[in-house]
């Protein structure tokens, strides 16, 4: 069973990387980074599952990672939104 999910994690890693490199849109790139993060978390937990007794340390690491990845996403989105707004204002200034 664990093998299926480890395989899934590897496949998702590849898919997300290809998506990240070929994305033509910034938001799509951010989505790809998020999928890549989920794939890495999946790999970690699948490895933790291999041990006989359940290893709580990778679980705690993934919990921390989820919160850090939402922070990064929020910062990137804020950067995109403010950048777009600044560009919009600049273009309006040129038209006037």
């Amino acid at each position: 069973m664990t093998g299926i999910y480890a395989l899934l994690a590897v496949a998702l890693c590849g898919l997300a990387m290809i998506g990240l490199f070929t994305a033509g849109n910034l938001l799509r790139r951010l989505l790809a980074i998020n999928v890549l993060g989920s794939a890495v978390f999946l790999l970690l937990v699948a490895v933790a599952r291999k041990a006989d007794a359940l290893d709580p340390v990778p679980h705690a690491m993934v919990l921390t990672g989820i919160v850090v990845s939402v922070s990064t996403t929020a910062v990137a989105l804020a950067l995109i939104l403010h950048g777009v707004e600044a560009r919009r204002k600049k273009e309006q200034g040129q038209h006037d």
Binding site: V47, A48, K50, A51, D52, A53, L54, D55, P56, V57, P58
Partner: peptide, 9 residues
């Protein structure tokens, strides 16, 4: 296989 379960326990 990671084996920190015993240490945490």
């Amino acid at each position: 296989a990671p084996g920190l379960a015993a240490a945490v326990d």
